[in-house]
C-alpha cells in the first residue's frame, strides 16, 4: 500500500467559486478593444505576482514562452505555483532558478527523450519544490475546460482506480444517472497564463499554426493572459481570415512581440530546436554551480530578449534554425544529457 495523506489529496489549487470568477471578470477583464502592446518587462511585472498560480501554453517543446520565463527570472518573481500540463523546459528553468516552489504535475520532470531534468528533480527531492498533486494531461485539459465553461468541476470516468486520482485533488461521487462512481476534477483558473503564438494583432487576436494543444481553454480560464507573439501583424490581416484566429482579443490582457520567443525550443513552421544551445544547457544542468553560471550568462547577464538572442549567436544561429525547420538544412546531432 502506498502511503496516502489527506493533505495531498484534499487541497484545491487554482480553484475558484464560479461566482467569484464572474465578479473578478466584471472588475478586471475589460472587453474594450484597445491596443495592448507593451514590453515583455512591463507585461511580466504587471501580470506575474509573487505566489501566483501560473500556466504556460504550448505542448512538449513546442511554442514554449521561454523569453517570458527568462523575464520572470530577471525580475526575481518568487513562490510561484506551476501547472505542469505537458511542457518541460519553461517551468524547469523557473524551478532551477528557484522562482517556482510548488507544482501540480501531469508531465514535467522529463525532457522527453533527453531524460529527466536534474535541476527540477533536485528541487523536488530536496523539498525546495513541493509537488502538490499529480494529475494527467487530460486532467488539466478538463480543469481548464470547466473554468472556461464557468463550472466548478468537470466529470470524467477516466482515472478511477489509480493513485493519480487520489493525488489529483479530484473527488469521486456517485453519478446520479448511472448510479456508478464518477470523478469530478476541480476547475483550474490560473492567476496568470502566458501563451506564445505565431501571430497576433495589437488587440490580442491570435493565430496559431499546427498543434493548438489546450491553449484555447487555457486562454479563457486564465485571470491574466499574456500573449507573446513571433510577429505583431496588422489588424486587416486578421480580418482577411477570421477562422485562423484561435484566441479572441477580449480574453487577452497584454501583447508583446517576441521573435524567437521559444528558443532553444521550436515554433512549428518557423524555427527548429537549437541543439547546440540545448547541449550547453544539459551540460550546465549537471551541477548547481554551472546552472547558476548559465543563468548569469544568458538571463541575468542579458538586459532583455534581444540581448539574449545576440548572446546565443544572433542572426547566424537563428537563420540556421529556420533553415532546419524548413528542411533546407539537415537536422543536427540531438543534444543528450551527459555524465551522471
Amino acid at each position: 500500500m502506498t502511503v496516502r495523506t489527506e493533505e495531498v489529496s484534499s487541497r484545491l489549487y487554482g480553484w475558484e467559486h464560479p461566482d467569484t470568477m464572474r465578479e473578478y471578470r466584471k472588475k478586471h477583464k475589460s472587453f474594450a478593444k484597445k491596443d495592448k502592446r507593451t514590453t515583455l518587462a512591463e507585461a511580466v511585472s504587471r501580470g506575474v505576482k509573487d505566489g501566483d498560480y501560473i500556466a504556460f501554453g504550448g505542448m512538449g517543446s513546442v511554442r514554449n514562452p521561454i523569453a517570458a520565463v527568462h523575464e520572470i527570472i530577471r525580475q526575481k518573481i518568487g513562490d510561484l505555483t506551476i501547472g505542469t500540463k505537458g511542457s518541460q523546459h519553461d517551468w524547469q528553468l523557473l524551478a532551477a532558478a528557484g522562482n517556482v516552489t510548488k507544482a501540480e504535475v501531469a508531465y514535467g520532470f522529463g525532457d522527453e527523450v533527453r531524460g529527466l531534468s536534474r535541476p527540477a528533480r533536485a528541487a523536488a527531492e530536496s523539498g525546495r519544490l513541493k509537488v502538490l498533486s499529480e494529475t494527467t494531461n487530460a486532467g488539466f485539459q478538463w480543469r481548464f475546460t470547466a473554468a472556461m465553461k464557468g463550472l466548478s468541476f468537470y466529470p470524467t470516468r477516466s482515472s478511477l482506480g489509480t493513485d493519480t486520482l487520489h493525488y489529483s485533488g479530484s473527488k469521486t461521487i456517485i453519478d446520479p444517472f448511472t448510479n456508478e462512481p464518477v470523478e469530478l476534477l476541480p476547475a483550474c483558473y490560473p492567476d496568470v497564463v502566458i501563451i506564445h503564438v505565431h501571430r497576433a494583432d495589437r488587440y490580442g487576436n491570435c493565430q496559431i499554426d499546427g498543434n493548438i494543444a489546450e491553449d484555447i481553454e487555457l486562454a479563457h480560464a486564465g485571470k491574466f493572459v499574456i500573449i507573446t507573439a513571433e510577429e505583431i501583424i496588422h489588424d486587416e490581416v486578421i480580418q482577411q481570415d477570421p477562422a485562423l484566429t484561435k484566441i479572441p482579443y477580449f480574453v487577452v490582457d497584454a501583447v508583446v512581440e517576441v521573435p524567437y520567443g521559444s528558443h532553444p525550443n521550436q515554433v512549428p513552421g518557423l524555427y527548429s530546436f537549437d541543439e547546440t544551445h540545448w547541449q550547453e544547457w544539459l551540460d550546465a544542468s549537471l551541477t548547481d554551480e554551472d546552472v547558476e553560471q548559465y543563468f548569469n550568462t544568458y538571463v541575468y547577464g542579458t538586459k532583455d530578449h534581444y540581448a539574449y538572442l545576440e548572446k546565443i549567436g544572433g542572426v547566424r544561429v537563428l537563420r540556421e534554425l529556420e533553415k532546419i525547420e524548413k528542411k533546407l538544412a539537415p537536422y543536427p546531432k540531438v543534444a543528450r544529457r551527459r555524465g551522471k
Binding site: 502506498t2 520532470f109 494527467t136 489509480t162 486520482l165
Partner: peptide, 26 residues
C-alpha cells in the same frame, strides 16, 4: 511514472504520468 520512494518525499522524482492515468483505464 510518479516517484521512486514515497510520493511526498521522493528518492527519485519521475517525470509524471502524463496521459497514462486517463488512457490505461479506458
Amino acid at each position: 511514472l510518479s516517484a521512486i520512494g514515497s510520493f511526498e518525499k521522493p528518492k527519485v522524482r519521475l517525470p509524471g504520468g502524463a496521459g497514462s492515468a486517463a488512457l490505461l483505464p479506458t
